[in-house]
């Protein structure tokens, strides 16, 4: 009965990522896409919140969006995995529901 949470805005622009991280449950997955990939970086002002959430549920970033913004896996907070578009679809199929945090 798990949920895939998706977020598409930078945590510096709006509270969606932080709010989503505050509502994840064990077994859930959270995928950062578009500008939200910024939230997956090490050493940001929000890194501690993201690291804490990584202990509760699986965190992912969409690799094409990461590459587009000049980021690589080495820039990511430990434990965050990358997925491609196919992986996004797999995540959506694996979980009971999808919640997009606008």
């Amino acid at each position: 009965m798990s949920t895939l949470h998706t977020v598409n805005k930078s945590p510096f622009e709006r509270a969606a990522l932080i709010s989503a991280l505050g509502h994840v449950r064990p077994g859930d997955a959270l995928l950062m896409i578009e500008d939200a990939v910024v939230g997956a970086r090490k050493r940001t002002a929000f890194a501690a919140v993201v690291e804490a959430a990584a202990k509760i549920c699986a965190l992912f970033v969409l690799a094409p969006d990461l590459a587009a913004r000049g980021m690589a896996e080495k820039d990511l907070i430990e434990g965050i995995k990358t997925v491609d578009y196919g992986g996004f679809v797999d995540l959506a199929a694996k979980h009971r529901r999808v919640q997009s945090w606008l």
């Binding site: 009965m1 798990s2 949920t3 505050g22 509502h23 994840v24 449950r25 529901r97 999808v98 919640q99 997009s100 945090w101 606008l102």
Partner: peptide, 18 residues
């Protein structure tokens, strides 16, 4: 509370976000 809100969300068939 926030935790209860998360539980309520997890009980739904469909979540529509606005």
């Amino acid at each position: 509370g926030r935790a209860e809100m998360a539980t309520l969300m997890a009980e739904q068939d469909v979540l529509l976000s606005f």
